[in-house]
Each structure stands twice: as structure tokens, then as C-alpha cells.
Design a protein around this nucleic acid. Structure first.
Lengths: 232, 232
DNA sequence: CATAGTTTCATACAACTGTTTGAATTGCAA
DNA sequence: TTGCAATTCAAACAGTTGTATGAAACTATG
């Protein structure tokens, strides 16, 4: 009967430190010091540093995915089996944004850890990450049901853009705040979610012909083209 | 008269290795081996590893910014002193996307290095990065001139989203390709640029009331809210 | 050629990394 | 209690890191 106390202490400390400082700057000695356990405990309980990181990533990843899927299911239920575009996108980006933005005190360490994990591509995580696409495919399916006439590639692009905006917003709040001198309020999380959902939904619902290159031969673009040639 | 040859060899090798593998995985010994110079040369020519990275980042950053500004200037010239929204956005995201995507052989090491630098936040770079906002402010200004009636915060959000989509697209081509099973073609760079520019322009030009939270109390959202409460 | 300054080089250094070891301690069943 | 396994611990290990040293090689000037 293994006593999981030390194990849990290590997991908690590791998650917190990684979330705060990133993988590159945190050593096993930092973790065990913060957890108040012996250095050898990590290798005893997890085998190696990489296995510790992997366990952390798997556990927290499953939790995040469950949240997103629950929100998707709820939206589909409320819509009689079919959720509309914005509801799907909201289920996709909402949980992470809510956990990473908002009042400092309420931010979940788990989500900030996941953001770190998706930024810094450390080997043990890279190996696991491939499963993510299976999870995203469910949202692609839901979007396809909401937009039966939409081109499949456009749906993936919309998904990609939604994640891109959400991701960048969680990890680069600072630049946006500095650039806008505080005019962009990131504390109203639901408003931020609305912005991102609306923007992504627009790329999906508005026919602009972007996928077939419409307005790329106007004067301005050609001028830009010429400029671009110069640098080569 | 200092011979800059060794210096240049080091810079080139470092840029290439950092672009390929990231900062965490590249040691000074990797760099000097790849450059074919002695280990001590780095400290002799640059003082320290951090100063080498900083020099690389400053040099390449200036180059990228110059490209973007040239494209912006050209667009403004062609528009009689005022570039339209899409032209501004294209000047912002075009250079980086063209350099990072497209045929493997043409991708510039410099741009991939800059992407790395913006992903992995290593101390010497973090210190310099603040200057970036001054550069972005010029594009915010151009957008403001193109959209005099647009809310200032909306402009910053649009800029933020454009950079987010461009950034994520350059660094996570793999997931998009895997998710879409090749249906999203990233090789047609200009088409990708169009997509991103169109999407970002839409958030700027389409009045949706997103900034004031319109449709957040419909049935679906409330259901999602309930779900979200459960996790707490 | 000689000499002074610059640049290269092999080598050593100290600090830090993840991991291992073997003894000490603990918890619990017989 | 005794005995045994699970767990903790201090210490050491082997490897890697960035940096420093002092001698050697080079370059150009007088």
C-alpha cells in the first residue's frame, strides 16, 4: 500500500513551479525544496524527471479536455442535438481562458501549466501531444454539423484561428496591455471570450472568398509585392 | 583591425541551431562545433552566451521590423498617404509568414530564429523585447488612420488577433496539417496570408457588438455556464 | 627581422544537472 | 515484540554546462 502523500506533494509543487517559471528554469532540486521532500523521492516515485512531467501533462490534459467536452455536450443538448457555431467555439476556448485570465487569485495552476506545456516543447510532452488532434476532431465534427455547407478546410482553419487567438491571449497579456496602455481590458474574461468566439465564428460564417484569393491584385497589394521583391 | 570572420561564423551557426532546435537544447559546444571555431571564441567575441543571443535577437529583429515598415510605407504611398486596413495588416504579418512558411528551401533562418525567440522566453531576450511595442504602435496608428471611427481598443485587439493567428500558424503547422489531414494547404503562403488578413480585418470592420457582450444570455450559453460551475 | 597587439587554441575550472546508492527510518502484519 | 517491506534520507556520482586561463599562432607595423 503506497503512501501517496509525497507523490502528491511533488506533483503540486512541480505543477506550480513549471506554471510560474517554465520548464527550462526549474530543477528537481527546486521542486523538492518547494515540496519539502527529499531529492531522491522524485526518482523513487516517478522513475525520472521526464516521467514526472509526462504524468503531470497527461493528468491535467485529461482534465482540461473533459471540461471542454462537458461544455460542448451541454451546448448540444440545449440545442436539441446540434450546437450552433459560437457555442462550439465557446466550449473550445472558454475553459482555458476562464482559468488563465481573470482575477489573479482565481487562476488555476493547472491551466497555466498547460499553457506552458503548449509553449515550451519539452521532449516528454512532445511525445504525448499527438493525442490532442483526436480531441480537437470532436469539435471539428460539431462545427461541421453546425455548418453543413461549410468547406471542410475552412472549418479546420476556423478552429485553428480560434485556438491561436485564445492561446496568444493567455500567454501574452502583457504585450497587449502595454500596447494598448490598458485600453484593452483582459479582466472581463467573458468579454474576451466573446471577442475571440465572434472573430472565429466570423471567419466561418462570412463568405469572403479568402480561400480563393480575391482582392490580391489591387494597387496596394501589388505595391507591397514590389517591396517584397526588393528584400530578396 | 578585428577580423570579423570567426564572429560571423558563430552568429550564423548559432542562429541556425537556435532556429532548428530552440534555445534550451543548444549548447555553446554545439555552436562552436557547427561553426568550426574554438569554444573560447564565443566568450572572446561576445563576452558571454547571453550577449551572443541578445546580439542575434537585436540584429534580426531590426531586419524584420524594417521589412514590415517598408511594406507599410509602400502601401501608404500607393494609397495616397493612407493605406487601407488589409494592406496594413498584410504589411504586419506578411513578411514573417512568407519567410517561415512556403517551400522548405526558401525559409529564412532569421525568421525561424525570431519565432523561436518569441516562443521561448529566455532572459537576455526578455529584456530587449519591450521595444517591440513601439514598433507595433506604428501599425496601430496606420490602422487608426484607415478606420477613423473605430474604437481604439478594437484596433489593438485586431492587431493582437492578427499577430496571434500569424504566429500560431508559423509555429504549429504540424497540428493543423494533422488535424485537417492535409486539407489545409500551408504551402500557398499568399493564400494563408489572405486568410489571416481577412479574418483580422473582419474583426475590425464588422460591427458585431462583441465588445459589449450581446448574445451571452441565450440558452446555450447558460447551459455552458452551468457546466462550468460544476467543475469548481 | 623584430615586436606588439590581436586572435586562436587546448585545457582546466567551478557550478549545476538528473540519477544512484546504501543506510536509516517508518508503518504494519504476524 | 519481531520481522519485513515500503519509504525517506544524506551523500556521492557521472555528466554537462558556461566561463576563465595562459600559452601558442597569427598579423601587421616599425
Amino acid at each position: 500500500m503506497p503512501s501517496d502523500r509525497t507523490r502528491a506533494l511533488i506533483l503540486d509543487a512541480a505543477e506550480r513551479l513549471y506554471a510560474e517559471r517554465g520548464f527550462g528554469d526549474v530543477t528537481l532540486r527546486d521542486i523538492v525544496a518547494s515540496a519539502g521532500v527529499n531529492l531522491a523521492a522524485v526518482n523513487y516515485h516517478f522513475g525520472s524527471k521526464d516521467e514526472l512531467i509526462a504524468e503531470l501533462f497527461v493528468t491535467r490534459g485529461i482534465a482540461t479536455n473533459r471540461e471542454r467536452l462537458a461544455e460542448l455536450k451541454a451546448a448540444e443538448l440545449a440545442g436539441g442535438g446540434r450546437a450552433d457555431v459560437k457555442a462550439v467555439l465557446r466550449a473550445l476556448v472558454g475553459p482555458t481562458l476562464r482559468a488563465c485570465l481573470g482575477p489573479e487569485t482565481e487562476r488555476s495552476t493547472a491551466s497555466r501549466f498547460m499553457i506552458r506545456a503548449s509553449i515550451e516543447s519539452v521532449p516528454p510532452i512532445r511525445r504525448i501531444k499527438n493525442r490532442e488532434v483526436d480531441h480537437l476532431r470532436k469539435f471539428a465534427g460539431a462545427l461541421h454539423r453546425a455548418l453543413p455547407d461549410c468547406d471542410e478546410a475552412d472549418i479546420y482553419w476556423g478552429l485553428h484561428f480560434a485556438l491561436a487567438m485564445a492561446h496568444q491571449t493567455t500567454r501574452d497579456t502583457e504585450r497587449l496591455a502595454k500596447l494598448s496602455e490598458g485600453k484593452c481590458n483582459v479582466d472581463d474574461v467573458e468579454a474576451v471570450i466573446d471577442r475571440i468566439v465572434d472573430a472565429a465564428a466570423m471567419t466561418l460564417t462570412t463568405r469572403t472568398g479568402a480561400s480563393t484569393n480575391p482582392a490580391r491584385n489591387d494597387a496596394k497589394t501589388m505595391a507591397a509585392r514590389r517591396t517584397e521583391k526588393l528584400k530578396g
